[in-house]
Amino acid sequence: RQGFVPAAYVKKLDSGTGKELVLALYDYQEKSPREVTMKKGDILTLLNSTNKDWWKVEVN
C-alpha cells in the first residue's frame, strides 16, 4: 500500500540494495486516504521525497 507520511517521522536508511528505505521513528495513524499508518520500527520503501514535509512511501 502506498501513501504519504510526515518526513519528520522517518529516517533514510542505507540499504545497499538500490531501493531507498526509511525507518519509522514514531507511530503514525493515517488521517486521510492519501496517508498510510506505520508503527515505530517499520521499514518502508521510499518512493518520493521531493516534498520536504511529506514523503511518499510503500508499506511492505
Score class of each variant (00 low, 15 high):
1 R>I: 07
1 R>A: 07
1 R>M: 07
2 Q>P: 04
3 G>D: 00
3 G>L: 05
3 G>R: 03
4 F>E: 03
5 V>D: 01
5 V>A: 03
5 V>P: 02
6 P>V: 03
6 P>S: 01
6 P>F: 05
6 P>G: 02
7 A>N: 03
8 A>E: 11
8 A>I: 10
8 A>T: 11
9 Y>T: 07
9 Y>N: 06
9 Y>W: 07
9 Y>I: 08
10 V>Q: 01
11 K>P: 02
11 K>I: 13
12 K>A: 08
12 K>R: 13
13 L>M: 10
13 L>D: 03
14 D>H: 13
14 D>Y: 12
15 S>N: 14
17 T>R: 12
17 T>D: 14
17 T>M: 14
17 T>F: 13
18 G>K: 11
18 G>R: 10
19 K>P: 14
19 K>S: 10
19 K>E: 11
20 E>N: 15
20 E>M: 12
20 E>V: 15
20 E>L: 12
21 L>K: 10
22 V>S: 02
23 L>Q: 13
23 L>T: 07
23 L>A: 05
24 A>E: 00
24 A>V: 08
24 A>I: 03
25 L>C: 07
25 L>I: 10
26 Y>D: 08
26 Y>N: 10
27 D>G: 05
27 D>A: 06
27 D>W: 03
28 Y>V: 01
28 Y>S: 01
28 Y>Q: 01
29 Q>S: 11
30 E>N: 07
30 E>T: 09
31 K>I: 06
32 S>Y: 06
32 S>P: 04
32 S>H: 12
33 P>C: 12
34 R>K: 12
34 R>N: 14
35 E>T: 08
35 E>W: 03
35 E>Y: 06
36 V>N: 02
36 V>E: 01
36 V>S: 02
36 V>I: 15
36 V>Y: 04
36 V>C: 07
37 T>K: 04
37 T>P: 08
37 T>A: 07
38 M>W: 01
38 M>V: 10
39 K>S: 09
39 K>A: 09
39 K>E: 06
39 K>T: 09
40 K>R: 11
40 K>H: 06
41 G>V: 02
41 G>W: 05
42 D>W: 10
42 D>M: 11
43 I>S: 03
43 I>V: 11
43 I>P: 01
44 L>D: 00
44 L>H: 03
45 T>R: 13
46 L>M: 04
47 L>C: 06
47 L>V: 11
48 N>L: 08
48 N>W: 06
50 T>R: 10
51 N>Y: 07
51 N>M: 08
51 N>G: 09
53 D>W: 15
53 D>Y: 15
53 D>K: 15
54 W>V: 02
56 K>P: 02
57 V>S: 00
58 E>S: 08
58 E>K: 07
58 E>N: 04
58 E>D: 04
58 E>G: 07
59 V>I: 13
60 N>W: 12
